[in-house]
Design a binder for these strands. Structure first.
Lengths: 227, 227, 227, 227
DNA sequence: GATGAATGAGCATTCATTCAT
DNA sequence: AATGAATGAATGCTCATTCAT
């Protein structure tokens, strides 16, 4: 059993190592330009070895997505465990998300890849894809739950279905991150007219914006009185 | 000169025709699965002829992006021409954008392609790319200008740089559209837990949300009195 | 039209050239060991060019089969045009077949490949496969027709369905050719115990054997009287 | 020694087990599509273990051929032990062969594989290959011996070298079996024009055909008188 | 002996781009 | 200007075989 554990651990370690390497390469050159050959070479492994760990290129990239979403969910889950008004939870979830992407921009790429797979109907079957699905749903659930808490504790208006509100927040957040993380280029400078805004600033103001928008008027008044 | 004009017009017509065909193919099979061979065939042209009109595949697709952004900007420009409160202009810009994408989803794909080019640092140089840049900047300008009008006429709070606010709105809008247009799949159902929300509903509520958030308190009060 | 004909002729010539090269390579190394790369190189063409002429490896090999079976059928057809007793036609068909394989052993390989495709259920769809089917059926028809002629003119016994008899003759002939054309090797020498029999001899005696077997007794007597 | 015998017996049992598994897999998916991985897995063994028993894939498949030909030869040998006219022995050998293939079609595949190895000059050296050679030669010998008996007892004509006649019968038999066992498919139906003939029927008529052909005229007359 | 993780040569196929006509 | 035949680099994947444990 001891031995079996060691083998299993070693195998898992190598699997993680491949994902590590793939993450680095994707960060450097993007998903499209990363080949299995290169991953193998950089990982110091034979090409075939990759296929012992991942059924194909798509699955390997989904594994990155899975790892990233699991990490993110761990952070988001901790937020939900806190006893705070829903509106504050939403704000914290947002800040956590942005902080996570800032620290691990590669996962933003991986999440986008995952969505492009769904969109292009090239999604593969398998355990990892399932995990990605579950993780995406879980992240969504955290948002919806925070909204429900807020609607219940009176900090968030109840005029919109929390699931719809969740989709809006989730989608908008991704869009803003996308904007914030567009690779530096002449283009970006033009759009931004030479002014750069940090992802934090963009996202912070976004949170303020929708926070005010969805805050319950009474809760808002109370808060203003406190100030 | 007459003759030259005719020639030039014919040439331009063929260029537009190629773009037409490419748009249809992209709608049908996505950018990844659309080949130059197929475009040429469907356009009734030789493969080499495509290269007389576009330097390469990327440029051809950028031409679609350019056309789409030009069309969109024409619509957005008309909004700005109207004498309305800034906050209303913003709302109208948003509704216009969503309506445009709903009618021409292929341009959403094209705009995303354009951004992926920037992101993957595979952007090409050339006149069309410049035009796309300019158009993107122009769209952005419309938003910023509407925000500035709103800040000036007192309908929008002035606590955030209008350019930053513009980026936020622009990015968030794209993110929501992305969410709304994810192809139907098991995945999407899971995320949405079986409930579907139309792009209009999502975007409408989003506009309400940020509208309230950025509305100037005084303007808000006035409006409430009216009601 | 002149020009169009030239183009078409040139294209066809190149197609035939590719088949020529493939035939040589298959003769040299067998089908399994012949790669598309090698065919392209030996043909003095780019790898992609092969795919302009043949949809894939299987189709290219079927084209060889098609060419071979068409050539063979042309020869067999001429036999049937002759006004001879059925039993003699059968004999002539057999001799023609063996002569053809002797001159073009590569087609024996190609025919076997075709059958292995059917057997392994990897047969591809397409015009060439259809032609191979038709040609195989046509060859079979020649045999059956000769048998029917023989049964009618009294030179062949009528106690077996001519179609079944055709299958027997066709299958047996292939088996004998297979035996006769086993590549030289220690193995073959062992089976044959050091004695070699030419394909002609083997097949000639085979024809005599089944000829006697299926000959109508009366016809046989007449013939014997003549002698 | 006792212990050593047990070890040796166990080893041999495992070897046979691997062959068993390989036979099943080949029956199911054909030789081309059967991988060493799959054989190992289905045999409940490690992949490396296969190589302790067989030097490589080819040798493993030759082992199947060897087993099959040994089994067949055992049956054929019993025929020869009977005191019967040569012509009857030939007929019995044929019926035995067809019955054996009918019961064990996998060996037909294996025998064909063996011949394709010779043909493609990919034959390997080694004890098993030698055994296959010997077995093939032995089968051939049974036929030749039966022919010699027949020529001696006057039941078979002596005008052809019995070794050549053996080759003819052996090759033709295989060809007919090949025809009879072509997998059902559109192709086969076309060749057969919708009519199916069983392997027994095909082979039975074949035996009659060549039986008559090689039967000695005097023996024939005697037989006819009996009837 | 037994294992199975690692290997890497080998292959078919695609497709954007070029260029001779 | 228009063509489309030719190109060949690029890539994902398979699988028989080896070898350290």
């Amino acid at each position: 059993m001891e031995k079996k554990n060691r083998k299993a651990r070693e195998r898992e370690a190598r699997t993680e190592h491949i994902i590590d390497v793939a993450e680095v390469l994707i960060s450097e050159k993007g998903i499209e330009n990363t080949t299995m050959d290169e991953i193998a070479e950089r990982a110091g492994l034979g090409k075939g070895t990759l296929y012992l760990h991942f059924k194909g290129k798509t699955v390997l990239f989904l594994a990155i997505c899975q790892r990233g979403s699991a990490k993110l969910n761990r952070l988001l889950g901790r937020i939900l465990a806190q006893d705070l008004p829903g509106i504050v939870l939403i704000e914290k979830l947002g800040k956590t998300y942005i902080g996570f992407i800032k620290d691990n921009p590669v996962y933003f790429t991986a999440f986008s890849y995952y969505e492009s797979l769904i969109d292009s109907q090239n999604m593969v079957e398998g355990a990892i894809a399932e995990r990605c699905e579950e993780n995406a749903q879980e992240a969504m659930n955290y948002i919806v739950r925070a909204l429900q808490i807020g609607m219940h504790d009176g900090s968030i208006k109840s005029d919109v279905d929390p699931r719809e509100l969740g989709l809006i927040i989730w989608g908008a957040s991704k869009g803003i991150m996308n904007m914030a993380y567009l690779k530096k280029s002449r283009q970006r400078e033009k759009i931004m007219q030479g002014v750069e805004f940090s992802a934090e600033s963009l996202f912070g103001h976004f949170i303020d914006l929708i926070g005010t928008g969805m805050m319950h008027p009474d809760y808002q008044s109370k808060n203003e009185l406190k100030q």
